[in-house]
Design a protein around this nucleic acid. Sequence first.
DNA 1: CCCAAATTGGACTGGGTTGGTCCGATTCAA
DNA 2: TTGAATCGGACCAACCCAGTCCAATTTGGG
Lengths: 163, 163
Amino acid sequence: MQITRASDYAVRVMIHLASLPPSSTVRQSELSKATEVSGHFLSKVLQQLVRARLIRSQRGAGGGYALAASAAGISLLDVLEAMEGPVRLNQCIEEGPSCDRKSWCPAHQVWAEAQAAITNVLGAASMASLAARAKGMSYELHEKTVWISGVPKKLKKKRGRTN
Amino acid sequence: MQITRASDYAVRVMIHLASLPPSSTVRQSELSKATEVSGHFLSKVLQQLVRARLIRSQRGAGGGYALAASAAGISLLDVLEAMEGPVRLNQCIEEGPSCDRKSWCPAHQVWAEAQAAITNVLGAASMASLAARAKGMSYELHEKTVWISGVPKKLKKKRGRTN
DNA sequence: CCCAAATTGGACTGGGTTGGTCCGATTCAA
DNA sequence: TTGAATCGGACCAACCCAGTCCAATTTGGG
């Protein structure tokens, strides 16, 4: 019941790319720095995202990675399923006649409901919206950075909107 | 993102117990038959449920397992968390200042929302309600069984209320 | 044409989890 | 006391997770 680290990292990558001007190409090393993920491991994550057609890669000098589609058209659910395959809360939740208990197991419906709830939430969160939210936050972050390089950094407790 | 087999089995056990008269004691062998789970493995599941105080065990001859509380007071979420620990969709979702990205990571809130969605659904499903639903189904099932032993079984498509 | 930059694709690993089996110890009722 | 029943592990194979590392390939530029 927990997403893998790789999925988490993939989401960071996608949000980072989405917050850039469309079709910007970013080197792996830069992504590694931005997401705080080891370059070696990140390359595996990136490969999976490429294979899932969520990003495109450009090899060679001056190469890098870029979103393959509009950030508004990619949801958190898309990224998650690219990394982990389809969300299936219980083994018996799938199309087709895979589970013969399905017809009578009273829990089946609840699992299905819970799964629908989760996919609804994740499917509604687009990379574009997350990137926009990140921009609002990174503005604060930028302020902080600037201040640190100049004056003592004490605005940490200023953040009252974790929401 | 998938519950373990053990959790699934635990839910079957709990529903079975909940569908019996209150504080009935059931032997492991019977539970094994009812849930279609190997006795050896089931014993591990049962032990965990006992330790979580969801069921009580009676040793010795005539012993067995029984619900430790009212079936209405135990939710699917309770059973799940007894088996797998607290639901935590992403590593960074927990109380306390565990994740320093939390303050700015824009995905954090979505994970939290998805988690709330899932716990809402699972927390609302009580063993009592599931057992009641099972009774309704087993009634149909009973009919079917009777029919099969007598006349051709064709009432399958009668169930139009998956809801 | 060749070099350097960059991705690609896979091998490898250590550690943990999963799903399962098995058995001796313990407890209790008859 | 004996047999029914749970208890509490040990044990196992197989798989997944997270991460590292490296050689091969591709590409742009001097």
